[in-house]
Structures are given as C-alpha cells and as structure tokens.
Write a protein that binds this DNA or RNA. Structure first.
Length: 631
RNA sequence: GCCGGAGUAGCUCAGCUGGAAGAGCAAUUCACUUGUAAUGAAUAGGCCGUGGGUUCGAGUCCCACCUCCGGCUCCA
C-alpha cells in the first residue's frame, strides 16, 4: 500500500504497516524520535496500522509546540503520575486523567486527604520514573475482560468507565500500571524532559455534585526545560494583567468582606463605567431601543409566575416588609419587570417591536466559592433589553442583535466565541415551541455565516440562547453577551397584542445583553488592555506636570484649557522630582503627560505619550489630536 | 456549597523549634526647586481576619466562623 508524505511524495509500505513502520521506512532516527502520527489530519497512535492512500505526517520530539504533540506528551505524563501515586499511596483508586490545554490532570480517590506539600514528593517519584525510563504497550481486549481485570484490582471507577466507553476497549501499560485508555501515547518516556505538578483541587466524579468528590492533581509537561520555564514565565506575566491586581493598582475598584461579590467603584473606575453606559445609551437610541426603569423589589408571586422562583429560589435574596404579609425578593434579572411593563396596556401589532432597554442593578446569591473578582459577582449590572415582537419579526431582530454585538466587540478589538445552547431538562413549554425557537436561532447564526459550537441542554428554562464567550488572561472562558429567544414567559404573564386580524396574539420575546454584565465586561477590558486603556476610556487622559513650583500656575492654566475642551486632565504638583512624577504617571498608565517648564508655552508643549514617545506641539495641535483620538 | 491553600501597616512581603511586631514602597513633615520611569532626612502608621481554647507566655499550637486564592459544581 501507499501513503502520502507531507512533501507529496509517496511511500510504499507493506499492508498493515503501522505509523512506526512508516517512520522506520524513512529513517531510524525519525522512528526513534517519533511521538505521534497524523493520518489524514487526525492524531493517531504510532502503533496503529495505516490505510492505503492516507496522507501522513510524523510528529517528533522536535515538534515541541505542536498542540497534538504536546497532548500526547502530557497524556502519557498523566499516566506516569497515576503510576507514581499508586506506588506512594496504597489503597488509592484511580479515576480519569486526560490532557487539557496547557497541561493535564488526573483524578484520584485517596483514602486520606492529600495536602499540597505532598505534590513535591509525588513529583520526585514521577521524575524517578523518568530517570528509570518507561515504555508503553497497547492491547485490545474485550469489555468483559477489562471489567474483570479492573474489578480484581479494586478500581470501581475504571469498571464504570469501561461500561460507558465506546468502541474497542484498549489498555495502555507502563511500569506496573495499566490504564483504560483510548490513547494515543508516546512510545516511551524519553521525550518527557520537564514536568511540573501545579496544583491540587477537588473535582466531582463525572462532574456530578451528587457523586463522590475526588482529588484532582494538575500538572504540565514539555519537550524541554526551556519550554516549561517559558510557560511559567508567561503565567507570571499574565498574573500581572489580572484585573483584581490592576483594579487595586489603578485605583478602579475594591471588594470588601462587608458585601462579598459586590464591587465598590472608585472615582477612576466609575469613569470607565460611565463611558460604557454612555456608549450603551447612544447605541440603543440609534438602534430603536427605549430606555425604561423597573423596580428592584417584587413580590414573590411575580417570580412564581415567571418560573424563576422554582428554578432559582436558592440564588435569590429575599426581603421582608414590616407592613405586608407578602415576601419580596430583589430582582435577579429584568425580564419579569419588562413583562409587567409590556402587559400594563393594550398593545397593537402596529407598535411592535417594543425594545425595552434597562441597565439595572441585579442581585444573585451566588455560592461563595464561585465568586471571582469582577468576573463573577453577586451585584450584577447587565446591559439588558427585551424585544417584544411578532413571529415574522424575529429573524430581523436577531440579526440586529448579532450586528449590534459585532459592532461593540469590534470597538474593543475583542473576539468572541459563539455558542448555541439548546433545550435543557428543566425546560418549560412544548417541544414544538422549542423546535421553533431553536430553529430560529440556528438559522440566524447560519445565515450570518457565524461559526458556533452547540451546547446541548444548556439553554435557559424558557428558551434557547446564543452566548458570546471571552477568555481571561489565565485562559478561563467567561460568558459575556447572550441572545435568548423566548416563547414561554410572555404566555406565563398572559401577554398579548392585537393583530391585524383583530385577534389577540402572544408576542415572542428576545432577551439580550451584549456586553453581558458591566462588572464582568470591565474586568475583561482591564485584562485585555493590561490596564493601558485607550484614550476614550482612560480615567485620566492627560496629566500636566509643572517642572518646578514656579510653573504651577502655567501648568494649571493648560490643564484648565484642556478640561474646558472636555478632556479628563489633572496636575501632578511639583512636590517630587519630575522623574518620579513621570514614573508615577507611567505606572498609572496615563496616556499623555505634558511636562511644563521654562521652555514651554501654548505654542510649544512638551508631550510625552504612554510608553515614552516625546514630541513638541502647540496646544491647539495637541487638543485637536486628542479630539481625533477619542472620536 | 464541596476539595486544597492563604489572611501580619494603605500595597508587596519577612517574622525559625511559642519568649519585647519588622523591611521596602505609599502617606505626612522638612530640606532640595527639580527637564522625561524612583533626591535626601525625619515622622507617623498594627485588636497579626473574628471568636474561643491550650500555655507562665500565642502572630506562631488547637477548634469554630468570616473573607480571599486555585479548582469542582452552578451561572436565569
């Protein structure tokens, strides 16, 4: 048979030849260094046979940054970790250990709790295995045989995994450890040059919080120590951009134990907040939305009607009134308020769609362990809107939402990943309704040519949704915008409009937030810009520094003239050396610094840009340059 | 909520086997009057997260709680 090599040449092999055979046919050195084969683009174990006509690419220890090559390296390292743990902790049960982005993990059920300090000991044992060297062997066995084998070893998790595994059951063995595994794996442990166990965490078996919690050990591995060092250095750099660190450093916000999960916005943080609010208002106005304001507090009946009480009561804050028997709740979302608003008058099809916009304070009693700086809060502010429309208006409205989102994300140079979430188990409404709403969202994405992934069963209880996700500096994915199509809640609130046929019809509602939560969006922006905001968002846009006390008056005059033109400007008084004040401005990431001394005048200002560039220009030139930059 | 870790000055952190709470930066004052990333000196600043316990003696050891960090679960 023949296979095609990356240079398009053909390699002739015996029938049934494996990837390793192909490597050997090319050269012994290549065979030694081979870690994985890509057959028609798919990663495949070297031990598996090739097929006639396949195009193949052999990955070696030199493909140190190829994602597939790193995956196989880390997957094999995870198996070495399991071997080491089993040797050090008799009685431990092994669960599952896949490679992940930037590393791998392995889940164990330890007889005694494991503590972080013990990671060093495990890492040492793993390195000892590497020194001894390990070879992997692969075998295919029957399902029953595999179950019997793992049952005999006292590995109940593995037995369960065999039951749910699809296709041929394969085992990989190295040292005295055999694991149920689909592969692929390295030939031997020689390519593993650098290993680090990074952290310890609890993780529920099969991701189910009703099942036992296992101990997860995270680690990473590389083809060279240099790559590991670079990876760790990158992590350190990323931590410097962490919005929680920059938030304090730039004096934007803080969090307090007196109100966990609710940011205190400082004056400088509020500047950014208000710029985003202005942006939201301007764009909503331009796109036909109407600003509304609905209460923060509602009787519980409202949330029973909406269905939120049943689904989310554990995450709501309840409030008692001394005069009223009724119990109240702080709104965790705006939809019921907007439903009541729509239902407050008789509506005509001629007036549809209604686009109610409100950026209101919401409270959600999130579990303590899930709070995370600005990215997961209890006090949440969405740039929310609800569009009440007729069936024939749905498509155009969804298109408009997608375009609006694209406009906003482009403005910040952010790229979102789109996800379509479909009917969940706890859905309300009929399958026919869901077929319609899911179909409408899917069609909108496809007709706009947007790439998306599908999260089956991840929709809201009242409708499917398109979510826009962003990644933070440490690679964690967060939901930003969401566009949801709802056929259910308007029915539950008994909403209707009069149609052209003089009959009552139930409107559809599109729930949408595009920035998502203002808190979270600002958190993402802080990390995205590393605190160096573009001029229009910068809390202080220009700082004027008088060289000496004699220049104080002149500096204030320049500052006042800039403030008059609408720029955010302050003066760094001459109480310290000019060098120190410039340094402070750089650390605060102020976009422009004007040094004002004997040599300066309105005709010639000394302008320093963030990062160090210097120029001389007249006040008028500088002011018009700023005006261009913020527009 | 669950697993593991951490809470010492406004910030970043030291404080060993229990024996008189420290440094740098920031702040304040004084001197210097400054030219593009740190002038010098002095001063002030602490319920060592909170509550309980062990001890002659607790920042240090034990218990509970709170908050934060890394994950898991959850995220309308």
């Amino acid at each position: 048979m023949n296979v095609v090599l990356p240079d398009n040449s053909t390699l002739e092999l015996l029938d049934g030849a494996t990837g390793l055979d192909a490597a050997r046919a090319i050269g012994p050195k290549l065979a030694e260094q081979a870690v994985l084969i890509r057959a028609n683009g798919n990663p495949q174990d070297l031990r598996l046979p090739l097929e006639d006509g396949q195009s193949i690419q052999i990955l070696t220890t030199r493909d140190t940054s190829d994602p597939d090559a790193l995956y196989v390296l880390r997957h094999s390292t995870a198996h070495l970790l399991a071997e080491a743990v089993r040797r050090l902790y008799p009685g431990v049960k092994v669960a599952i250990g896949p490679p992940i982005e930037n590393g791998f993990y392995y889940d164990f059920d330890f007889p005694e709790p494991l503590h972080e300090e013990e990671l060093d000991r495990i890492e040492a044992e793993l390195n000892r295995e590497l020194e001894e060297g390990r070879e992997w062997t692969r075998e295919e066995i029957s399902r029953d045989e595999a179950k019997a084998r793992f049952a005999a070893e006292g590995e109940p998790y593995k037995v369960e995994l065999v039951d749910s595994a699809e296709g041929q059951i394969t085992l990989y063995t190295q040292g005295d450890f055999t694991d149920l595994c689909r592969g692929p794996h390295l030939q031997n442990s020689k390519p593993i040059k650098a290993v680090k166990l990074t952290s310890l965490a609890g993780a529920y078996w099969r991701g189910d919080s009703d099942r036992p919690q296992l101990t997860r050990i995270y680690g990473t591995a590389f083809y060279s120590q240099k790559d590991l060092d670079a990876h760790l250095a990158r992590l350190e750099e990323a931590k410097k951009r962490d919005h929680r660190r920059l938030g304090a450093q730039l004096d934007l916000f803080h969090l307090s134990e007196h109100s966990p999960g609710s940011p205190f916005w400082h004056p400088k943080g509020m500047v950014i907040w208000n710029e985003l609010e202005d942006l939201r208002r301007r764009q909503n106005l331009r796109r036909g939305y109407s600003e509304v304001k609905t209460p923060l507090l509602y009787d519980v009946d409202t949330f029973i009607t909406s269905g939120h009480y049943e689904n989310y009561k554990d995450n709501m804050f309840f409030v008692a009134s001394k005069e009223d028997e009724k119990q109240f709740a702080l709104k965790p979302m705006n939809c019921p308020g907007h439903m009541l608003l729509f239902g407050s008058a008789l509506r005509s099809y001629r007036d549809l769609p209604f686009r109610y916009a409100e950026s209101s304070t919401l409270h959600r009693d999130e579990l303590a362990g899930t709070l995370h700086g600005l990215l997961r809060v209890r006090h949440i502010t969405q740039d929310d809107a609800h569009i009440f429309c007729s069936p024939d208006q749905i498509e155009a409205e969804i298109f408009a939402c997608l375009d609006f989102a694209a406009y906003l994300y482009d403005l910040f140079g952010l790229t979102a990943q789109f996800e379509l979430s479909t009917r969940p188990e706890k859905k309300v409404g009929t399958d026919e309704e869901w077929d319609f709403t899911e179909g409408a969202l899917r069609a909108a994405l496809e007709r706009r040519g947007i790439e998306y992934t599908v999260n089956e069963g991840d929709g809201a209880f009242y409708g499917p949704k398109i979510d826009l996700h962003m990644t933070d500096v440490l690679g964690r994915s967060w939901q930003m915008g969401t566009i949801q199509l709802d056929a259910i809640m308007p029915q539950r609130f008994g909403l209707s409009y009069m149609g052209a046929d003089n009959k009552e019809h139930t409107p559809y509602v599109i729930h949408r937030a595009l920035l998502g939560s203002l808190e979270r969006f600002i958190g993402i922006l802080i990390e995205h810009y590393g605190g160096a905001f573009p001029l229009w968002l910068a809390p202080v846009q220009v700082r004027v520094l008088p060289v000496g006390e004699a220049h104080t008056e002149g500096a204030h005059a320049v500052a006042a003239k800039l403030a008059e033109r609408g720029f955010r400007v302050d003066v760094g008084e001459a109480t310290e050396t000019i060098g120190k004040r410039i340094r402070a401005a750089e650390l605060e990431k102020v976009p422009f610094v004007i040094v004002y001394g004997d040599r300066e005048s309105e005709e010639s200002l000394a302008v320093r840009e963030r990062g160090g560039g210097q120029s001389h220009e007249s006040f008028e030139d500088f002011a018009s340059r700023l005006a261009t930059l913020v527009s």
